[in-house]
Design a protein around this nucleic acid. Structure first.
Lengths: 113, 113
DNA sequence: ATAAATACATCAGATTATTATGTATCTTTG
DNA sequence: CAAAGATACATAATAATCTGATGTATTTAT
């Protein structure tokens, strides 16, 4: 099962920022794979969504980049800037708050695992 | 505080369906006010978002409508159709699942209220 | 009387995703 | 060793869905 695509909207940027906060530096392809892994294939970030998002984060000054070569293949690492770290805290806590609100609104009971 | 707008994307339809599941019938304006109330003003559904959504639900056969007149003012009530009831269950449980996944992904701890 | 609230609706513009396409390298496998 | 699949970047047309503005009209509160 993969979540219907509209659910990801609005959360992708937060996911990326949080991963970077936990991992110091990551490259694009690595992010797609990590998310796939962590979510047991339930969230698949497409490259068409990810790369523009990364570029936007960079032009907003939230991340910095460094390019590395693995053999002849290029790899672009992204790291949080100081303002990116602040932004991550804001976004994550906003999303947490939003999810609490949604839970209440939708009267979602925690699963009795 | 109002949530940044992108968070609502992808959840609006589910919110509307769930409200209709709980309330038999509601009209558009009422939905905006109910959500505002229930979320303590943190989620404000704009009319430009709501009405197209309601129209889409109707053309998908998920809701039926009946028009009432309160004095001279028109009021359009929306109710879930049978397929709308099923769809609501699906959407709500998908969203619940998604939120669990996001919680894990973002390592969000429950607030110690 | 006037402003605010109620109640519908549409539309231009912005944002942000999907899907397709393109380029290129490296690794696995029959 | 050739071909397929994985790795790794990127862009572009299209689609979906929201905001904010605008419009119409009635009812209620000041």
């Amino acid at each position: 099962m993969i979540y219907s695509s509209e659910l990801l909207k609005g959360t992708l940027k937060t996911i990326v920022l949080k991963l970077l906060a936990d991992n110091k530096k990551m490259y694009g392809y690595e992010i797609t794979q990590r998310v796939k892994e962590l979510t047991l294939d339930k969230i698949q970030i497409t490259e068409g969504a990810l790369y523009p998002t990364l570029h936007a984060l960079e032009s907003d000054g939230l991340v910095t980049t460094e390019t590395e070569y693995i053999g002849k293949r290029v790899r672009k690492y992204y790291s949080l800037s100081p303002s990116g770290k602040n932004k991550t805290k804001e976004k994550v806590s906003e999303l947490a708050d939003f999810m609490e609100t949604m839970k209440f609104l939708l009267d979602i009971k925690p699963k009795t695992t």
